[in-house]
Design a binder for these strands. Structure first.
Length: 596
RNA sequence: GGAGUCGUAGUUCAGUUGGUUAGAACGCCGGCCUGUCACGUCGGAGGUCGCGGGUUCGAGCCCCGUCGGCUCCGCCA
């Protein structure tokens, strides 16, 4: 029934054939995409990676091949030998690249059959995602997925070529490595040879790349798989890929100057022209104006601080907020005065349920110049009018106000801003707004543990002028800024990095600030502290999220669309059915008992 | 850990206030067709309404639970 490949050699890919190939004898191999049967005449669209071409089976010209073609069904794998012929003018198909020509089949070999696929590859609407993930091998045959993975390959190659030209060495670092509690949860791997001990999969190659700098490699990069055992999102997978790099003897400016042309080259691959230099913004300013450390600057609606308007207020919630060092901030929706009570209620529920805001106040500045507000009774018209004025509200606008502690106001008003931007179509989808967010705080305080945590990671260098704030009587970790930076695109964190600590004494101070005893620091990071003492150059680097970058250029909203074999929101693989239970023998060998 | 949302032929979906035999398109199978290209045309097969329980004379529809996909909050140094 089936034919052997034998000595058949493919001469071309289907999608590459053009008018210039007319008259050539070709051998093509691929999948049956569609079949159109007219009795004595049968057309087959043959598909391979490069596209489709029409193959003609004609009973008169070649009865053997024609009768064999009757057996063909969707996704059969075939080899076709035939001649490339020009199509007549009436039969040219302008919708496909190979539409000027067709293949007159002389021989066809059926290399393999296929069951009827669980979904159609050319359906207008792709099937549900769980079905796609279960049959990923078929899903990956779809044009869109092939385009996405091709784009990803070309982006990766662009990065490799660029970094090679800039003198970077691509060096691999271990996947089985040491757990470093701090940061994300580690994926653990039990060691059979050392029962009861575990490797961890790397959250990033952080310490290895720093050690490569200590070892004098000067410029390192890696297309690095990273693992974090945290909950998933549309833009977060348990394993993901970073373009990870590190360089010696640099300041943040040098990193920016390296990355901006890299981005230009990668986005050129994606057909997007990017202008440099990228704007910069301090973290504090980003939080002040947008309530986010990754602001989407494609539209306005920036925060306005109304705290000073309400300093004298007797309205208890506001007075209390200000007394407790909280924030009262507003955003103005142009043309929003027509928002109905129902719409406002929905938004109120949104900020309350999602971001735990205590409420959403509003001031409506109607087209006729009349001002109404949910706060009118509490604050009086005079104060409301001043608030509206400060928020730059004009006739026809609506002002939304949120009061509360700083984090909640930032998150809720920032979330509301993005939601309104989306609902009102304020986002210009043709814009590619890059932004360097700089001068992050070094630490953030976690009241529940009563200790400081590194905002970036514990190896990030504080600014030189802030080092003295770390110790002594006047110690003020909260006021220390870091030489850390994020690259943001359209409100998406594309990457982040920092200048690292290269002095052992500074590193020790940071560990102390984080509440590690010297002994504990040694236990966790002793190898690294030792390495630092053997001539460590000043160094720094950055890592870019390849999945996110590719998704943005592919026009996808989920990174699953640019990953060949992604996991579901519950971190399982529907194709392989992992994770799964293992045998008792395997567990015994590892000396592991399951306690459930 | 929490919230929302979806789950009906192979696929994408419709299914009224709870009421007779659960529909459509595409796909699939068979016939016809010599220029189609999302071929056309005639005919046919195909359903555990995710799963379990409950309410009811009667459940795809209502209630409870559960499983799974997706989205978000927390989490993600």
């Amino acid at each position: 029934m089936l034919d052997n490949l034998g000595s058949l050699k493919r001469t071309h890919r289907s999608g590459e054939l053009r008018a210039e190939h007319t008259g050539q004898e070709v051998t093509l191999m691929g999948w049956v995409f569609r079949r159109r049967d007219f009795g004595p005449l049968t057309f087959v669209d043959l598909r391979d990676r490069e596209g489709i071409v029409q193959v003609v089976f004609d009973e008169e010209r070649n009865p053997t091949a024609h009768s064999k073609a009757k057996r063909l069904r969707s996704e059969f794998v075939i080899a076709v030998q035939g001649r490339v012929v020009q199509r007549s003018a009436e039969t040219v198909n302008p919708n496909i690249k190979t539409g000027d020509i067709e293949i007159v089949a002389e021989q066809v070999s059926i290399l393999n059959e296929s069951k009827t696929p669980p979904f159609e590859l050319d359906a207008a609407k792709p099937p549900s995602e769980d079905l796609r993930l279960e049959y990923r091998y078929i899903d990956l045959r779809r044009q869109k997925m092939q385009d996405n993975l091709r784009l990803r390959h070309r982006l990766t190659m662009a990065a490799r070529n660029y970094l090679d030209r800039q003198g970077f060495f691509e060096i691999e670092t271990p996947i089985l490595t040491k757990s470093t509690p701090e940061g994300a949860r580690d994926y653990l791997v039990p060691s059979r040879l050392n029962p009861g001990e575990f490797y961890a999969l790397p959250q990033s190659p952080q310490l290895f790349k720093q050690i490569l700098m200590i070892s004098g490699y000067d410029r390192y990069f890696q297309i690095a798989r990273c693992f974090r055992d945290e909950d998933l999102r549309a833009d977060r997978q348990p394993e993901f890929t970073q373009i990870d790099l590190e360089m010696s003897f640099v300041q943040p400016e040098d990193v920016f100057n390296l990355i901006e042309p890299l981005i230009v080259e990668m986005f050129a691959v994606g057909g997007v022209e990017v202008k440099t230099p990228f704007p910069r913004m301090d973290y504090s300013e980003a939080m002040e104006r947008f309530g986010s450390d990754k602001p989407d600057t494609r539209f306005g609606m920036e925060f306005v601080n109304l705290g000073d308007i309400f300093t004298e207020t007797e309205f208890a919630p506001f007075a209390k907020t200000l007394q407790e060092d909280g924030h009262i901030k507003a955003i103005t929706l142009e043309g929003g005065a027509n928002y109905s009570r129902k719409q406002i209620d929905d938004l109120t529920a949104f900020v309350r349920d999602v971001y735990k805001a205590s409420g959403l106040a509003w001031v409506r500045y109607s087209e006729s110049g009349e001002i109404t507000s949910s706060l009118m009774k509490n604050l009086g018209e005079e104060t409301i009018r001043r608030a509206a004025e400060k928020a730059s509200a004009k006739a026809g606008d609506m002002v939304f106000i949120i009061a509360g502690n700083r984090d909640v106001v930032a998150a809720a008003l920032g979330g509301l801003r993005l939601e309104l931007g989306k609902r009102e179509g304020l986002v210009d989808a043709t814009k590619w707004n890059f932004l360097w967010v700089t001068n992050f705080p070094m630490f953030e305080y976690h009241p529940e543990d009563k200790r400081w945590y590194a905002m970036h990671h514990p190896f990030t260098s504080p600014r030189d002028e802030d080092i003295e704030k770390l110790s002594g009587e006047q110690a003020n970790p909260g006021g220390v800024l870091a030489k850390a930076y994020d690259l943001v695109l359209n409100g998406v964190e594309l990457g982040g990095g920092s200048i690292r600590i290269h002095r052992p004494d500074v590193q020790q101070t940071i560990f102390r600030t984080l509440g590690f005893s010297d002994e504990e620091a040694r236990r966790r990071f002793g190898f690294f502290l030792d390495a630092l003492t053997y001539g460590t150059p000043p160094h720094g680097g950055i890592a870019l999220g390849l999945d996110r970058l590719t998704a943005l250029l592919a026009g996808e909203t989920s990174i699953r669309e640019v990953i060949a074999f992604p996991k579901t929101a519950r971190a399982s693989c529907l194709m392989t059915d992992s994770p799964s239970e293992v045998s008792q023998e395997q567990l015994q060998e590892l000396k592991i008992k399951i306690d459930r």
